[in-house]
């Protein structure tokens, strides 16, 4: 493989990591609070707002049920308004973030709902405010589950980021399509796939290790 191709692959990997990292951060910044709210806003819960809960639930479901490639195309005007263009790695961050946020929200909601209700009651009995209950009880207790969920979200983002290559998003997917497929260079395709597999493995392993480290429910001596 020529040094030129190696340079392309390194650049594409860097672009992919950039897209996944930024959209993961934005997705988590929006998805974690949204998930915590969804987990606590049904009737009789900490931030009871059943109507808002239902509306947000519908929006989250709608976003999650739209195929990602359709979502990318459908929100092109929004992407252009935010990023100034609809082509390139920075532009790809917009649809990736919008896809990641509801995904992360549902995972966080599930993890927070797993927290024993008795802990919320104990915190209320101590005189904690709802915000203190979230920051000092719910999120720390749900953290191992949240970390595993974020890992899952990052892995999904890696595959989504390859898909934005098809619509001019840059990164490994773009490289694979343009060189591996359109220019018939199967060795490029093989390397792209290999790099993606390695990235997924690394992300998954790191996420699982962190989650186990954070999970104090496991008895260790």
């Amino acid at each position: 493989m020529s040094p030129e191709l190696i340079r392309l692959i390194v650049e594409a990997t860097r672009d992919t990591l950039y897209m996944v990292a930024i959209s993961g951060l934005i997705g988590a910044a929006a998805g974690i609070p949204l998930g915590v709210f969804l987990a606590n806003s049904k009737r009789g819960e900490l931030f009871a707002a059943p109507w808002l809960n239902a509306v947000l639930g519908v929006i989250v479901n709608a976003t999650r049920s739209t195929p990602f490639i359709i979502l990318v195309v459908a929100i092109v005007p929004l992407t252009r308004a935010i990023a100034g263009t609809s082509i390139g790695t920075t532009a790809a961050i917009v649809p990736l973030s919008i896809a990641a946020a509801p995904f992360i929200a549902r995972i966080v909601e599930g993890a927070v709902r797993e927290v024993d209700h008795g802990l919320i009651e104990a915190a209320r009995a101590m005189g904690a405010t709802p915000l203190q209950i979230v920051t000092r009880v719910l999120v720390p207790e749900a953290l191992p589950g949240i970390v595993l969920g974020l890992t899952l979200a990052l892995v999904s983002l890696l595959s989504y980021s390859a898909m934005v290559g098809a619509v001019g998003g840059g990164g490994l997917g773009d490289l694979g399509i343009r060189y591996g497929y359109q220019r018939f260079m199967p060795e490029v395709m093989a390397v792209v796939v290999l790099v993606l597999v390695l990235l997924v493995q690394a992300t998954q392993t790191a996420g699982e290790r962190l989650a186990i480290h954070l999970n104090k429910r496991i008895r260790r001596q």
Partner: peptide, 14 residues
């Protein structure tokens, strides 16, 4: 007002 519980309700992460 202090309160204690049947299932202790301690935070597992602390």
């Amino acid at each position: 007002i202090g309160m204690i519980f049947q299932h202790f309700n301690l935070l597992s992460s602390r």
